[in-house]
Structures are given as structure tokens and as C-alpha cells.
Simulated scan of single mutants.
Amino acid sequence: MSHFKKAVIAAGGAGTRFLPITKSVPKEMLPLAAKPVVQYAVEEITASGIKDITFVIAHGKESVVDYFSPDPGLETLLVARGDASSLRQVRGLSRMAHFSRVYQSAPLGLGHAAGLAAETVGDEPFALVLPDDVIDAKEPVLKQMLEVYKRHPGNILLVEKCRPEDTGHYGIIDAETTAPGVYRVKGLVEKPRPQDAPSNLAIVGRYLLMPQIFEALSRVKPGKGGEIQLTDAIQLLLEDQPVFACEFEGTRYDTGTPEGWLAANNAWADKLKPH
């Protein structure tokens, strides 16, 4: 049985790269094939055995959580129409997991968003998922990480090799290899210039975190724009706890950018074509 029973989905971002549509539609609700992007994150979490999910959202983004709430009016209509298959789909959404929400008053960074979930997570380890990163994988990526955790208990970050010239877009780890595709993290650098990067292993949107991260987050000084960086808190955790990173089997799409979202839709359209 996994120690991990809870997950947090960080969905507080403003989605400015998708304006004007994100003025009224949260980017997490943009469609990927016939489902909103955020549903892929929820499916990955529940397929990894985690059934308690907290959304961190901004005010005005309630539709992200409402999508997974029961809708008695719609269900009544579908029953009256005898549309059993649509009814199954609609009912299935709210039954996927136990959902709760906390509000992020301003986009003050991923560390700030994670810290807001302290109350719903409590004193236990949890998974943190960024729904922008949709990962097409045979085995859910979170499940791959939980397997690594069994062999290397500690905080686990998901990493992917990036092009050396792209290190400025990511948190980059300084690490030594402990097993194929698994690294012991010695340090983290947020968005280094290529010449300053300790490696080309970029942190992507999945984390398995121990509850001590909340105390570490409370000690982090806000950086530029008042943002609290999760990487700074993980750096503090390194003083007392092991932090590992693992690579994954699968293809990652950054649906937080218009070009990444289009690439994901093209890939899914291709998968759905009768071959």
C-alpha cells in the first residue's frame, strides 16, 4: 500500500499566454481531444491509486472544480432522455476522487500554491501535479514515481533532459546518478543560464513531497515578483532529508503554451485515428 493518499493540483495561474480565451475559460479547461486538459492530471492521479485531490485555484476559476462536481440538473435531463452513456460519463467525473479546493489570492509562485494546501494535506506525504504538463505514458507517470519512492524513500522530483540552451526555462538539478534514470539531488538552481547550469536535467510538473516541505516553505524568502519558489524550499529540505529525481517513460506536452497545446492535440488526434 502506498504512503501517498493525497494529491494537490496547482491550477492558480492566469493563463496569460492564451489570452483572450482565458479571460473566461481557465487554461486547464481547454480541450485536449474530447476532455479538458485538467482531466488528464486527475486520471493520472487516480490511476496511481490516489483518491483525495485538492485543487489550488484562483478566484474566477471555479469551473475547474465544478467540472468534477455532481450536476443533478444535467443528470436528471440525461435520465429523462435515456442517454445512459452520457450519464455514466457525467456521474463518473465526480466519483473519480474526493475533491476539495483552496484559493490562491494572487499568482505568487508554485511554492505559495503548494503551501496553501497544508491544511487539506495535513501531516502526510503528498503528490503535487502541474496539469499543464500532460504526459502520454503507458504507465501513469505518478505511478512510475511511486515505484522509485519504494526503492528510494524521500522527496522525488520528476526530471527530463532538456537542450543545454533551454536551462533558463526550468529548475535544474545538481545531482549524482544512483540507479539508471534515478539521481540523488545535491542542489537545485532556478532557471540558470546555460553556462551556469549544473546539468541539463530539468524539473517538470510532478513532485512527491514529504510534509516537512510546508515548514521549509514558511522559511523561504519571496523572490522576484513576490513569488515563493518551490525549488528554494526543496533546497532547504536537502539539509535534513533525501531528495531524489527520476526520469520517466513517456512523452511530455507542455499544454501551458499555445504551441505545446496544439502539439498535444495533434498527437491525440493521431492516436484516435483508426490505424
Rank of each mutant, 00 (worst) to 15 (best):
Ala179Asp: 13
Pro20Arg: 01
Ile53Val: 05
Asp136Asn: 13
Leu208Arg: 00
Gln195Ala: 11
Pro164Met: 11
Met145Ile: 11
Val25Ile: 14
Lys5Met: 13
Trp261Ser: 08
Glu43Asp: 14
Gly250His: 06
Ala47Thr: 01
Asp133Met: 14
Asp133Val: 14
Pro242Glu: 13
Asp254Ile: 01
Val38His: 08
Val79Lys: 05
Val134Thr: 02
Ser2Met: 14
Pro20His: 02
Cys246Pro: 04
Glu147Asn: 15
Met96Arg: 06
Ile203Asn: 01
Leu230Gly: 12
Ile213Asp: 02
Arg101Pro: 02
Pro192Asn: 04
Val129Leu: 12
Gly250Ser: 06
Gly256His: 06
Leu272Glu: 04
Gln104Arg: 11
Asp136Met: 14
Lys150Met: 13
Glu239Asp: 07
Leu32Pro: 04
Ser199Lys: 03
Ala47His: 04
Lys271Ala: 05
Ile156Val: 14
Glu147Ile: 09
Pro242Gln: 11
Gly226Ser: 09
Lys51Ile: 14
Val90Glu: 01
Asp254Lys: 03
Val56Asp: 04
Glu147Lys: 15
Arg91Tyr: 09
Thr54Trp: 00
Gly250Thr: 00
Ser218Lys: 11
Glu190Cys: 10
Val37Cys: 14
Ile228Cys: 05
Val56Cys: 00
Tyr183Trp: 13
Leu217Ser: 04
Asn265Ser: 10
His112Lys: 13
Arg17Gly: 10
Ala175Thr: 02
Pro211Leu: 04
Gly225Gln: 12
Phe244Arg: 00
Gln235Cys: 13
Ile213Leu: 04
Lys51Asp: 13
Gln89Cys: 07
Gly60Val: 03
Glu44Arg: 02
Val148Gln: 07
Arg88Tyr: 07
Ala117Gln: 00
Ala175Ser: 08
Leu188Ala: 08
Pro125Thr: 03
Glu176Tyr: 07
Ile45Asn: 00
Trp268Thr: 09
Lys143Trp: 05
Val129Thr: 05
Ile173Phe: 04
Ala11Glu: 00
Trp268Glu: 11
Leu236Ser: 05
